[in-house]
Design a protein around this nucleic acid. Structure first.
Lengths: 217, 217
DNA sequence: CATACCCACATGTGATCACAAATGCCAAAA
DNA sequence: TTTTGGCATTTGTGATCACATGTGGGTATG
């Protein structure tokens, strides 16, 4: 027989589970920049032993999601202003391209979904929920870029988000945030109109403004 | 006392050593696309045990330098044409920016060094040494981009190179290669002249042509 | 000749242990 | 009060082992 049963049951390895969980917490800003992590602590938190926990940390360190000191200590990275600007530059280079590639494939269902997500963003702003805000903001961009059919480029952008997230969380809480939903409305308008230059500009503006939030004042 | 001695002696962990070695072999095309790797084999090759070997593999898998099957088997990735084109697009987006940032800092010593590396490239072509060719080609670009003072962007580009290398090696050996040193001469000329648009174009041309080598014919 | 089955071996996974080094805290001294 | 020294604890590292599963090859069967 070819398969045991029709369930296609896949057992996710522990190191994979730990990796995904930890990555999610970092991406969504539940772990703040500078927070110290320990292998044993991670292992215990997710009910695994040290070995898979170490593997998860290695993957995350390769993505720049955690920084490892010369003595092996693991922390959520604290980014310098220069590094933040550099990562924003990468976003400004890649994300307009992703949006542009998604444009021909952006049908009405996608646009409506983006509109819904944007409402969630607005609500998170008025309710002052930073984690929900970041989460929905990322979902907005990812939903659009998924249509680009460019998995490697999307993965690269997600890596940048991952590096920025812990720092953004810290700063979001102390900074008054601009309403990113304005920029997103420009994105949606350009999508409806099929306006490729306008779309690229709107994305670039959104990325650039979120940068200013972090580096200015 | 603050330091034991003046040597600043640092003991490199095994997983770090294994990682660097394996990454170098992949980057320089000494491991061909599709080649199967085993944790035990890697461990034995570098005189380590399975644990650090696994950590090294995890880091490389996070960089896309190796692909891991659903059953955990590790291979050097075999890239589809679409993936190759996508990775080349990323190069075409990031590398001109890196070159542009390096331009104001490119003094005569750098240009001379690039010229020397380019001679090495030409020699590798006439002597038909694919590995030496790839190595020198990467060194040319990295030498230039290091001046950009943009470590995150450079790391991202290197990750792309790393993903492409095993496939390039296989194809380089069966394809007649164009002389990339022509493009590099354009790069050097633009650097001397301080011609930023020309520099970006030269880099983009170089990247695009190396793409054509892989996808056309 | 092609296909399906089966088994021995290879391989990834995860837990545990011993060890060395770094960290941080507390006490003692200036 | 501030600084220095040392010690107990925490922590990362690497090796090893048991186990389950996947893989590949050989054989039998159609």
């Amino acid at each position: 027989m070819l398969k045991k049963d029709g369930h296609t049951e896949k057992t996710i390895p522990h190191h994979e589970r730990v990796y995904r969980s930890l990555r999610g917490e970092l991406m969504h800003g539940e772990i703040e920049a500078g927070m110290a992590l320990t292998i044993r602590g991670i292992a215990q938190k997710y009910g695994a032993s040290m070995t898979p926990a170490r593997e998860a940390v290695r993957r995350l360190s390769a993505e720049g999601a955690v920084s490892v000191s010369s003595t092996g200590r693991v922390t959520a990275p604290v980014l310098s202003t220069e590094r933040i600007e550099e990562l924003a530059s990468i976003r400004a280079l890649l994300e307009p391209e992703l949006a542009s590639r998604a444009l021909p494939r952006a049908h009405m269902a996608l646009i409506e979904r983006l509109y819904t997500i944007n409402s969630t963003i607005s609500q998170a702003i008025v309710k002052n929920k930073p984690v929900a805000y970041i989460r929905a903001n990322l979902e907005f961009h990812r939903t659009l870029y998924l249509r680009a059919q460019a998995p490697a480029m999307l993965a690269m952008v997600e890596t940048v988000w991952l590096q920025l997230s812990p720092t953004m969380t810290v700063l979001y809480e102390k900074l008054q945030r601009r309403d990113a939903s304005d920029n997103h409305r420009m994105v949606i308008s350009a999508l409806k109109a099929g306006d490729e230059p306008g779309l690229k500009l709107a994305i670039r503006t959104d990325v650039t403004q979120s940068l200013r939030m972090l580096t200015n004042e």
